[in-house]
Design a protein around this nucleic acid. Structure first.
Length: 334
DNA sequence: CCTCCACTGGAAGATCGGGAAG
DNA sequence: CTTCCCGATCTTCCAGTGGAGG
């Protein structure tokens, strides 16, 4: 059933990308100055999730590395490394310069100083989910660091620039921006066919089944590949030679809840309590939510802290806040 | 129209926990 | 051991928002 499970993993970057040739060309052109060791302006990739932004960014840089003699690159997921410190640490780590930096007792701006001392080959930094950075000023600092080529990846362009100061914002506005649209059904099917070709045994899945998956995924390649992976895993556990329609039907909700469970696991116990209250109530007003939280926890945190929890859960797409001010209610994402 | 008030979210400072230095 | 320093987390304070109800 499964020939190469790596191909079905969400982070897998194919050597040949089936679509997005135009985007790749634009991106390659934007990075072109690096081949002469010149400065490349930041590039900004934006579009909905699962439209290939991250994949194209990594793919393009890796292709460039094949032709350019010297080029370093590092991928940073700002969702995980959302603080200034973590982001800088990750970037230094890509240069193997982070090994002796510990969270504690490192003088305050050693990280940025060390990055600015870097004088090796051009260094491409991909900042994925860049809108999740808690302090966007780090972008300004990175922008002013010579030798760095920035690739910013986000869902929505406005959310990134909203809290940048005007001067920096205008610098980024003039840089190359590449918009990614949702995949059409046929494109998604081709992507799935490609993954199935390398990842699965021949005949393991039919084209019409891939169409079913692509249809459910609604233009989101990450969801589509997740469903295919889940279905392949399930079929192989059942000892099947081919993926059946029943297996696909079962895999759709499972693939979606898998992502959700991963996010739930990232919450602390206290945050889980808040989530459970919302889940049980279905929909709940802020004051009721906080009262309920105080009842359930021995040593309750302040309401402001709970609001920070809620903000975090909203970021993880676990809950949704609806309405503003007095009309605000919270509900879980179904 | 105005005032009240539930709620939001930014800012600044306090506290926690842990590694390093003495 | 204690002291110092750090980032992360939490608290305190507060300005702003907009709907409810005089």
């Amino acid at each position: 059933m499964i020939r190469d499970a790596r191909v079905l993993h969400p982070e897998f970057v194919p050597g040949d990308v089936v679509h997005r040739q135009h985007e790749i060309n634009t991106l390659t052109a934007a990075l072109e100055p690096l081949t002469n060791r010149n400065i490349a302006e930041p590039v900004f990739l934006y579009g909905p999730s699962g439209t290939g932004k991250t994949c194209i960014a990594r793919h393009t840089v890796e292709k460039l590395r094949e032709t350019v003699f010297d080029l370093e690159y590092q991928y940073v997921n700002c969702w995980e490394d959302y603080t200034r410190f973590k982001t800088l640490y990750r970037i230094l780590d890509g240069l193997d310069k982070g090994f002796d930096i510990h969270r504690q007792s490192t003088p305050r701006d050693v990280l940025l100083d060390r990055l600015r001392d870097y004088d090796g080959p051009p260094y491409v930094v991909i900042l994925d989910e860049v809108d999740q950075l808690e302090d966007k000023r780090i972008l300004y600092e990175l922008y002013r660091t010579s030798g760095l080529a920035l690739m910013l990846v986000a869902n929505d362009e406005t959310s990134v620039f909203a809290d940048l100061n005007a001067r920096l914002s205008s610098r980024f506005q003039t840089s190359e921006r590449i918009h990614f649209n949702r995949y059409a059904l046929a494109e998604l099917v081709e992507i799935l066919e490609d993954r199935a070709k390398w990842g699965l045994e021949p005949e393991a899945v039919s084209t019409s089944q891939l169409e079913t998956i692509a249809d459910v995924a609604a233009g989101d390649a990450r969801v589509a590949i997740g469903i295919l992976r889940n279905a392949a895993k399930k079929a192989s556990q059942q000892g099947l030679k081919e993926i059946t329609d029943v297996v696909i039907q079962e895999s759709v909700p499972e693939a979606k809840s898998e992502i959700r469970q991963q996010n739930l696991d990232k919450l602390t116990d206290e945050q889980q309590v808040v989530f459970d209250i919302i889940a049980e109530a279905g929909e709940i007003a802020p004051s009721h939510l906080y009262e309920e939280y105080q009842d359930r926890v021995d040593d309750p945190k302040t309401d402001r802290t709970v609001r920070n929890y809620l903000e975090k859960m909203e970021r993880y797409n676990l809950i949704r806040a609806e309405g503003e001010n007095r009309g605000r209610t919270y509900r879980i994402v179904s």
